[in-house]
Amino acid sequence: MMSPLDPNVLFQLGPLAITQAIVTTWVIMLLLVGSAFFLTRQLTLLPSKRQAAIELIVTTLDTQINETTGASPAPYRSFIGTLFLFILVANWSSLIPGVEPPTAGLETDAALAILVFVSVIWFGVKGSGPLGYLKSFAAPNPVMIPLNILQSLTRVFSMFVRLFGNVMSGVFVVGIVASLAGLLVPIPLMALDVLTGLVQAYIFAVLAMVFITSTVEDGQRLNPKRQEK
């Protein structure tokens, strides 16, 4: 049995090793974009059931962002929503036999964590200015600057490790049980993976949201001249 920690390289493209996780990511991208394009083709003022369903998704996301952070959801909707949908679909892709979820690989989770790290800086600078963003490290007082800098790195690292560990362990356990007990035995574990995948996607998205908005709020509080628009 192949270790889930080893990437399954399908082919080499120059220095890029195209793994199964990357290909699965492309498939997920096509699936999400195609579905989104199909679902949003005919948006009308009087919504159909299909439109009502996708509007419910967006409204729920907006409500979650607003209730979690108190901020306006518009600037963060695309980033947080896409992170949630991608991680959810990636986690649930493990239910298809023979498909290795991209989030079970180090590279995908690390990339997601880096994107959260960069988005914290991006939204922090955009919301409270460069000085405000830098001042956010001095919250609640300058003594905390080293710890805040360290925290900004470790918190995204913990997100990366949490997502990777949960998804990888699920895939790993299902693989071991399937190899030992047969095809139908891992089904309860796979059902558990469905719940785990949903919870992990939700946690990753909510934590990213909290990190971004806390940085923006700290920067705006310490640099009142720059208010979030």
Partner: peptide
């Protein structure tokens, strides 16, 4: 691979922003 996945996710964010989040929010 990590960089490629980061780019993939960024592209996905951009595409979904264009074809899903903004149109639905606008509606």
């Amino acid at each position: 691979g990590m960089g490629l996945q980061a780019i993939n996710v960024l592209i996905l964010i951009w595409l979904l922003s264009r074809v899903f989040w903004r149109p639905v929010a606008a509606a």
